[in-house]
Amino acid sequence: MNAFLNENLILLNFTAYESGFGKETALFFVKAIVVIAVLLAVIVLTTSAFKGNNIAADVTGCKSVNTDSAESVQAFLQVYKVLMSPRCMNCHPAGDEPLQGDDNRVHTMKAQRGKDGKGVYAAKCSNCHQPENTPGLHTPPGNPKWSLPPANMKMVFQGRTARQLALQIMDYNKNGHKNKKQLLEHARDTLVKAGWNMGEGRKPPPLTYDAFVKAWDTWIQKGGYAPE
């Protein structure tokens, strides 16, 4: 770096003399350029350092004022328990087949994600999953938006560590293109809320819905940090 600057100083000195400037004027210009270059280097290095940090700078508009990494991470660990519960993970599988039941077994009937996440051919989700729960044991739970994430943005939960999942959700290009406001709204989505209206014979997620929303909001509002 120093060698590079010295070389440029010599070059600039030479150019300044050639242009007919006085020695002092030339030196002033050179110093000014060096100062600007150093400032720019500091800015670039600082930015890249933050990129390597846990701050979720990728979510558009996610520039929280009152960030608190400890509180944020603590909240996410609560959120993570819910996201990894069958009620959430069954529709965020690692493969292209949904899961079902409290033991996350592969969905019967060879159900497939399909391009839009709504199944394929005669096996579309809404052919069995009605706009509301069907009464009785072993019947399909329902919601008007019943589906998996689409094939071009699978938003996989299954197999993700807490850190991986937090970073994925805070990444605008991996979270269904949601900015901070949309992420906060997502916890209020009727399909997310349906996780707590699971139908007969299924366990609810490990937190109450209100506790989940509170933890979700805290996690994001405090900076959207990912656990180490």
Binding site: T108, Y121, A122, A123, K124, S126, N127, C128, Q130, T134, G136, H138, T139, P140
Partner: peptide
């Protein structure tokens, strides 16, 4: 309970299970 498919009819072109 929508498990066997014997009751499939088309509703607006989709193969819904009419029992549920």
């Amino acid at each position: 309970v929508a498990q066997c498919g014997a009751c499939v009819v088309h509703l607006n072109g989709e193969a819904v299970r009419s029992c549920v």
